[in-house]
Deep mutational scan, measured.
Amino acid sequence: QRITLKDYAMRFGQTKTAKDLGVYQSAINKAIHAGRKIFLTINADGSVYAEEVKDGEVKPFPS
């Protein structure tokens, strides 16, 4: 399943989102408010992988 960072954070909370991605909650808040195009893939085992689309390139998040 693929979902935006904002939607994932709204569904699970910023604290869990940060923990799942290995970053601080403040980084999640800042990324959402900056309007960054970050998409999360939720794997069947429950693990989460995030990618950011920037300038036409897709890069892992966090980099």
Rank of each mutant, 00 (worst) to 15 (best):
A34S: 14
P62S: 04
P62D: 06
H33R: 14
G35C: 07
H33V: 12
I3S: 05
D20F: 04
P60T: 07
K37L: 14
F61V: 02
R11G: 04
N29P: 07
A50E: 00
A44S: 12
M10S: 13
Y8S: 00
N43R: 12
H33I: 14
F12R: 03
D20Q: 09
A50W: 03
G46H: 06
A27L: 14
M10I: 13
I28Y: 01
H33W: 12
T4I: 04
E51A: 05
P62W: 05
I3E: 06
D20M: 11
L21D: 00
I32E: 02
Q25Y: 09
T17D: 01
G22S: 05
R2V: 11
D20G: 03
K59A: 11
F12M: 06
A34G: 09
V23E: 02
G56N: 10
A50M: 03
F39D: 03
D20C: 06
K59L: 14
N29S: 14
V23H: 03
F12K: 03
A31H: 04
K30I: 10
V48Y: 04
I38F: 01
R11W: 10
N29C: 10
K30C: 11
K16I: 05
T17Q: 01
T15P: 12
K37R: 10
V23A: 06
K59V: 15
I42N: 03
V48L: 09
A34V: 09
I28F: 03
V48G: 01
Y24S: 15
Q14K: 14
L5A: 00
K16M: 04
I42M: 09
G13S: 03
G46Y: 05
M10G: 09
I42F: 08
Q1M: 13
Q25W: 12
D7C: 08
S63A: 12
G22C: 07
A27D: 15
K6S: 10
S63K: 10
S47R: 08
G56S: 08
D45H: 05
Q1V: 13
G13I: 01
F12T: 02
A31Y: 10
F39A: 03
G56K: 07
G46K: 06
K54N: 12
A31L: 14
V58P: 06
L40Y: 00
D45W: 05
S63M: 12
T17L: 06
K16W: 02
G22L: 04
K19D: 08
R11T: 12
L40N: 00
E51M: 08
I28H: 00
R2W: 13
A27G: 05
T15A: 15
A27T: 15
I32F: 03
K30N: 13
R36A: 08
L21I: 08
A31K: 01
T41S: 09
R2M: 09
E52M: 03
D55H: 11
N29G: 13
K59I: 15
R11Y: 10
D45T: 05
Y24T: 15
Y8C: 02
K54D: 12
F12L: 03
Q25R: 14
G56M: 07
G22D: 05
A27Y: 14
Q1P: 10
V58C: 07
S63L: 11
E51F: 09
V48D: 00
A27N: 07
P62Q: 05
D7N: 07
N29A: 14
R11I: 14
G13A: 01
Y49T: 14
M10C: 10
T41I: 15
K54W: 12
Y24A: 15
T15G: 13
P60Q: 07
T41D: 05
A18R: 02
A18V: 03
A9L: 13
L21R: 00
A44E: 12
A34K: 10
P62M: 05
Y49C: 08
A9N: 06
V53A: 08
I32M: 07
T17M: 03
Q25G: 09
A27F: 11
T15Y: 13
L40S: 00
I32D: 01
